[in-house]
């Protein structure tokens, strides 16, 4: 399964780290591809303010997410009323599944696509607000443990992906993008690196497709493995944060295990995201040397700041305010619940932006490299986390 390619097809002309609602209209209308990647011309709401254009899709996100919550509650209530022991399937999975059904059957209506694209915005809002549930000391302690694991994971992921990519004779820049995507934070890292190493759109599409396909699979596989190994919430969350590449999928895979595991997955993944600038800078310098253009990156500090995920700062600030005792217990509960609602929209967006039929169009060799590489990385990080579990005890 892959996320629909609308983001990829517009990569050359947009800042993909900016929500679609804030982008300038790009390209000629007939060249804009829809979220299904079908190439059909999409109706464009000319004249409507950006915030109006995102309303239908945001409502769709909320409806799908809320349907997932209702499904969980209804099944639980039915089981209790009829004294049945039904499996407790979390709203997270329902929201993703409902989104998948919509996306892969009737498709996301064109009028809703800009709003659906805001799922990443809601993810980041949710992460910042989640800071209220972490004391700064815990962030430092767990962040340090995570950072050590992240450093090892970065080395392993880059080595594994590079070796596999060369074995399968993938283009060098595609290997770089797959390495960056699997070592740091999936789509954001690939998009950030694409410009830095001047990779082709096609290579970026392949790399994003492979990373997101595996992210979708991880939603179903990781919780099963976590339960099979009887992992603690903290250890599982750390593992997911290290091994699942895209932040939305990592958050969902963590929440599918437990609420606490979801929090730790976000913390570990956020730590990993914070390294994005260093890895992209390394690859940018490498490709600048390969192209023999001398110094390809002028001001390295400015480059690192530009690539640094700023929402991490928001997360740390909110955590610091909570640690300072600024919030009452009721306010903490309110902010934590707002974070959950933001994540609910994110989980719906994960399903709505995932299209099974796109898989065949992306080619199999990058996917094979992605699958084998991610499996190796998942096993190595699992061993690493089980070894690091002592740090939590």
């Amino acid at each position: 399964m892959v996320t629909q390619m609308s983001t990829v097809t517009t990569l050359p002309v947009i800042d993909a780290r900016r929500p679609s609602t804030l982008r300038e209209p790009q390209g000629r209308p007939e060249h804009r591809r829809g979220a299904t990647g079908s190439g059909r011309p999409q109706p464009v709401e000319r004249g409507a303010p950006p915030w109006v254009q995102i309303v239908p899709g945001t409502i769709l996100l909320a409806a799908v997410g809320f349907a997932g919550k209702i499904a969980e509650q209804s099944i639980g209530a039915y089981g209790r009323a009829h004294q049945l022991t039904l499996p407790n399937i979390e709203y997270v999975l329902w929201a993703i599944v409902f989104g998948l059904i919509v996306s892969n059957t009737v498709g996301v209506p064109a009028v809703c696509r800009k709003g659906v694209d805001t799922y990443e915005f809601w993810l980041k809002v949710g992460i910042v607000l989640l800071g209220v549930r972490f004391l700064l000391g815990d962030v430092v302690k767990l962040g340090t443990v995570s950072l050590v694991c992240v450093a090892l994971e970065l080395a392993v992921a880059i080595l594994v992906m590079t070796a596999l990519g060369r074995a399968f004779r993938l283009p060098p820049k595609l290997i770089s993008l797959l390495s960056i995507g699997s070592s740091i934070c999936g789509v954001s890292a690939i998009i950030a690196a694409k410009g830095a190493i001047e990779a082709d759109d096609e290579d970026a599409s392949y790399a994003i497709a492979a990373i997101l396909a595996l992210g979708a699979v991880s939603l179903f596989v990781f919780p099963v493995i976590g339960h099979a190994f009887a992992m603690s919430d903290q250890a599982y969350g750390l593992w997911v944060g290290l091994a699942v590449d895209n932040t939305a999928e990592a958050t969902a895979a963590g929440a599918l295990f437990s609420d606490t595991a979801g929090r730790f997955a976000v913390l570990a993944k956020t730590t990993r995201n914070a390294t994005i600038g260093f890895v992209v800078l390394g690859y940018a310098l490498h490709w600048a040397r390969v192209r023999a253009r001398g110094a390809g990156v002028g001001n390295k500090a400015a480059f690192l700041w530009e690539k640094f995920p700023k929402f991490v700062l928001g997360f740390v600030i909110v955590s610091a305010l909570a640690t300072a005792g600024l919030f009452t217990r009721g306010e903490v509960a309110d902010l934590a619940n707002l974070s959950r609602w933001a994540f609910l929209l994110t989980f719906a967006g994960v399903g709505l932006r995932t299209n099974v039929s796109e898989l065949a169009r992306q080619g199999w060799r990058p996917l094979i490299v992605g699958v084998v590489g991610e499996c190796v990385i998942a096993v190595i990080t699992l061993v690493m986390v089980l070894a690091a579990a002592r740090a939590f005890s």
Binding site: D15, R17, R18, P19, L22, E120, F121, K124, V125, I127, V128, L129, P309, K310, F311, L313, G314, V318, L321, L326, F327, G330, E331, A333, D334, L335, N337, L338, R340, W341
Partner: peptide, 30 residues
């Protein structure tokens, strides 16, 4: 000046904190 997605998320979350802290928004259900 254009804000990136990350900064918009920080601004939105900051607004939520202000609204909750000021009591304008309270008792958020889940």
């Amino acid at each position: 000046m254009r804000l990136s997605l990350d900064w918009w998320a920080v601004v939105a979350a900051g607004l939520a904190v202000v609204l909750v802290k000021s009591g304008i928004v309270s008792r958020i259900p889940w």
